[in-house]
């Protein structure tokens, strides 16, 4: 099945940022600090490097099959049976990711805003919203993301406020590597979770205007 609708690489960038920045980002400092202590920033850098590597691999894979999503070209590569199995695994993976995000979301909300509300109510609300948002054309989803991206930009303003804080000191990062290389690598896997979302590229890539392969890659990074 060839996909028909197209969007530009700028839109791809926006969609990826929206998929990656989510509830996972809220728990990122806590998780990395838990495993690697003050060396958490190194593990974040490492995970960033790995992500770039994986994105490159996805890109190399996807340009071989223009206009096809993962669900189609997996059957071409692996044959019908194992391709279907792979697709199934991918869907299971995405569903489990949704579950993971839901759990963190409910946890955060319960901790901060609604301590007494039962969990299933929170799940129900966001589930209805999710389903309502996703039952429409991909064009609509993308265009909605591009509007909401304006609000993501506000995050940068918040960052500026944080850097204005007096208690921030670069010297707190020292001594570098005190928690040990193994711990840093271990916390890399934790911090990877908050960057999850780039693997949806396997599907989104088919929708990119094919004339500009390089710009698609640019959008992905």
């Amino acid at each position: 099945m060839k996909v028909k609708s197209r969007f530009s690489s700028v839109n791809l960038f926006i969609v990826l940022v929206q998929t990656m920045i989510g509830v996972g980002l809220l728990s990122l400092p806590h998780q990395t600090h838990h495993a690697a202590g003050s060396d958490g920033w190194i593990s974040i850098l490492i995970s960033g490097f790995f992500i770039q590597l994986i994105v490159l691999l996805i890109w190399l894979l996807c340009i071989k099959f223009p206009n096809l999503t993962l669900f189609d070209f997996s059957k071409v590569i692996l044959g019908k049976t194992s391709g279907t199995v792979l697709n199934f695994i991918y869907i299971i993976y995405l569903l489990s990711m949704i579950c993971y995000i839901f759990i963190i979301y409910a946890d955060t909300l319960k901790r901060w805003i609604l301590p007494e509300t039962p969990g299933w109510v929170l799940f129900l609300i966001v589930f209805v919203l999710l389903i309502y948002g996703s039952i429409c054309k991909i064009k609509n989803v993308i265009s909605l993301f591009s509007f909401l991206f304006i609000f993501i930009l506000f995050l940068f303003f918040i960052t500026f406020f944080v850097y204005g804080d007096q208690s921030i000191d670069v010297r707190y990062l020292f001594p570098i590597g005190s928690s040990g290389g193994w711990n840093i690598l271990k916390s890399t896997s934790d911090s990877m979770i908050s960057f999850i979302g780039f693997e949806t590229l396997l599907i989104y890539f088919a929708f990119i205007k094919q004339s500009k392969n390089i710009s698609a890659l640019k959008g992905a990074f």
Binding site: V126, L129, Y132, G133, C136, N140, S143, L144, F147, L148
Partner: peptide, 12 residues
């Protein structure tokens, strides 16, 4: 949640 719902509705 409500405003998001309205926004999704508007974009559709």
């Amino acid at each position: 949640i409500g405003v998001l719902f309205v926004l999704i509705h508007l974009s559709r």
